[in-house]
């Protein structure tokens, strides 16, 4: 065999050599902030056609010609600013100074009417202190639209209320991953993560989350 081979015990050596050689003759990948440096005809790392597209709503969209009904005739859907004020735990956060930055640019929580109605149901249940039932409503929504960022965020909010801080953070992160291109929702999620970390006594982590939130709040 004429080509080099990768032996298990020389990985570090190989890596060093490879890095050195590649830096001069081949490509070198950039770090998180830099683009891929290309030597010749490397395509720009812009979103390629073959790359995965942004998340589609999981609910199948009715095809043209299919009769569709709004949720309630005559009742236009009210986009709600997230998170719901009544769901915020009173006073266990120290983010009043950045609060205003978060609440800018309210986005519609979801473009799926079924999701919106279940979110509303969850909100009113949570407002009356029925957190378990509120969570059950959100889970019902997730069965219909599992990739809906607003549902994951709502569940994160409920878990936070329930004192399940790790779950709150996990779910907020899932919501962030699904909320690409929606800075308002991402910022809300980071704020939620900050609250969860603060509640766990992780002040440093909370501050990091607040920094993240600020990145998306501008």
């Amino acid at each position: 065999m004429g080509n080099f081979s990768l032996k298990p015990n020389i990985s570090i050596v190989w890596r060093t050599i490879a890095l050195t050689l590649l830096a001069s003759t081949l490509l070198l990948a950039g770090c998180a902030t830099g683009p891929v440096t290309t030597q010749t005809r490397i395509p720009r790392p812009a979103p390629p056609p073959a790359a995965p597209q942004p998340q589609q709503p999981a609910m199948p969209q009715p095809e043209p010609g299919v009769e569709t009904m709004p949720l309630e005739r005559g009742e236009p859907l009210r986009p709600q600013a997230m998170p719901q004020p009544e769901l915020l735990p009173p006073g266990d956060m120290t983010v009043e100074d950045v609060q205003t930055a978060v609440d800018v640019a309210p986005e519609a929580p979801s473009d799926n009417p079924v999701v919106v109605s279940l979110l509303q149901q969850a909100d009113s249940l949570a407002a009356s202190g029925q957190l378990d039932r509120a969570a059950a409503s959100v889970e019902r929504g997730l069965r219909i639209a599992p990739k809906d960022a607003s549902l994951w965020q709502k569940l994160a909010r409920i878990r936070l209320e329930q004192g399940k801080y790790h779950q709150a953070e996990s779910m907020a992160k899932k919501s962030i991953a699904l909320a690409r291109g929606r800075p308002g929702m991402i910022a809300d999620n980071w704020k939620l993560i900050a609250e969860a970390r603060q509640a766990r006594g992780d002040a440093v982590g909370a501050q990091r989350a607040l920094d993240k939130m600020m990145q998306y709040s501008q």
């Binding site: 891929v36 395509p43 812009a46 995965p52 597209q53 998340q55 990739k147 991953a177 699904l178 690409r180």
Partner: peptide, 18 residues
């Protein structure tokens, strides 16, 4: 199944190359 095609959630840091 009434299922949705795979559309993996792309992390922010991903760069693409052909």
């Amino acid at each position: 199944l009434d299922t949705t095609p795979l559309t993996p959630v792309e992390p922010d840091t991903v760069q693409w190359a052909m």
